[in-house]
């Protein structure tokens, strides 16, 4: 089955790279519809990327090599993360080298590089954004880890594809612990991807920005890499959610190539529903003050820990 595994692996990466901007476009489209605006095309993020790649880079006078290297490092870690999340098939060779904890580590690496790059030029907005990003991160990271731990304890493994397989083949019963963690995961997803209510991807008010504030000094191809990486991050989070909470339809090794073929349209369907749901959540909630963001994330962390305790108490 080795060739199939390699094909699965390459397909996963390619699908992530291609589908990520479209997913972002779809979320934006749904949001526009819900807000009674004329919606941009689903392909709008691709147009944006093409335009940015074509432009010259303007670097701040005191930007260092770290600033120029960071976009590629962030992009690289996001692609590596995409390579170990079972979005279409579970036969991923790289997932033996990196499990769920390593996935959290990879996401943290990307976060640290974005923050350091934001501090490099030394502007007020950049450093403010970096501080806030790290503040969101240090609460979101353990919460995500706890969410993954619950799934890992249920399926007795920390390997993401095996978790997905284990959860697919389990009896269709209600797991109260997973219900808790699903809520926690949603909160983490919103916070980590700079969505409302923690951050606003469409904001033009600098003082409230987190993610955008860190990218203010980037331009041209560097900005394109950062934007693409951000889209990949959202896609990755969505796929982690699918793997943990709705893993059905992911092509397992036992299913063979046919299952893999079937998985692609199913993934598209899941993404469509999840994107619409994300747009609804974002439209219905208001942005929190930055000082309230820790409470929001602490809730996520406590819910995830509760999920773990519920699992230990009830064994389910």
């Amino acid at each position: 089955m080795t060739p199939l595994r390699i094909v699965t692996q390459l397909l996963e990466i390619a699908a992530a790279l291609i589908a990520a901007p479209a997913f972002l476009g779809w979320v934006n489209q749904c949001r526009a519809w819900l807000q009674n605006r004329r919606a941009p095309s689903v392909l709008q993020p691709y147009y944006g990327l093409r335009k940015l790649f074509g432009k010259d880079v303007i670097l701040a006078e005191n930007a260092s090599a770290l600033f120029r290297f960071a976009p590629y490092a962030v992009f690289g870690t996001m692609v590596a993360a995409a390579a170990i999340i079972p979005s279409m098939g579970t036969g991923l060779p790289l997932s033996t080298a990196a499990d769920a904890i390593a996935l959290v580590g990879l996401l943290a690496t990307a976060r640290v590089f974005v923050s350091l790059a934001a501090m490099d030029v030394g502007t007020a907005f950049g450093t403010l954004g970096a501080r806030r990003e790290m503040m969101v991160g240090f609460l979101a990271e353990p919460a995500l880890l706890m969410v993954l731990f619950v799934a890992a304890m249920i399926s007795h493994t920390t390997s993401l594809p095996l978790i997905a397989e284990g959860l697919t083949t389990r009896a269709l019963a209600l797991y109260p612990s997973l219900a808790f963690t699903a809520v926690a995961f949603t909160l983490v997803l919103l916070a980590e991807n700079a969505r409302i209510p923690v951050d606003n991807p469409a904001t033009h008010l600098e003082l409230t920005m987190i993610h955008e504030a860190m990218l203010l000094e980037y331009s041209g191809r560097h900005l394109a890499m950062m934007e693409w990486a951000a889209a990949l991050k959202l896609f990755n989070y969505a796929c982690i959610g699918f793997a943990l909470f709705i893993p059905w339809g992911t092509g397992t090794e036992a299913g063979g190539p046919a299952a893999l073929m079937l998985a692609a349209p199913l993934l598209a369907l899941k993404l469509a529903v999840a994107g619409a749901g994300l747009a609804v959540v974002e439209t219905l909630s208001a942005k929190l003050r930055v000082f309230r963001a820790p409470e929001f994330l602490a809730t996520a962390f406590l819910l995830a820990v509760l999920g773990l305790l519920v699992y230990l108490l009830l064994g389910a």
Partner: peptide, 22 residues
């Protein structure tokens, strides 16, 4: 790989100095 150097953007603020950093 073209890149030009210019003053920091900082949302168009021109009198940026080191005390404005965090």
């Amino acid at each position: 790989r073209r890149a030009r150097r210019g003053p920091a953007w900082d949302c168009g603020f021109v009198r940026l100095d080191s005390r404005m950093q965090d």
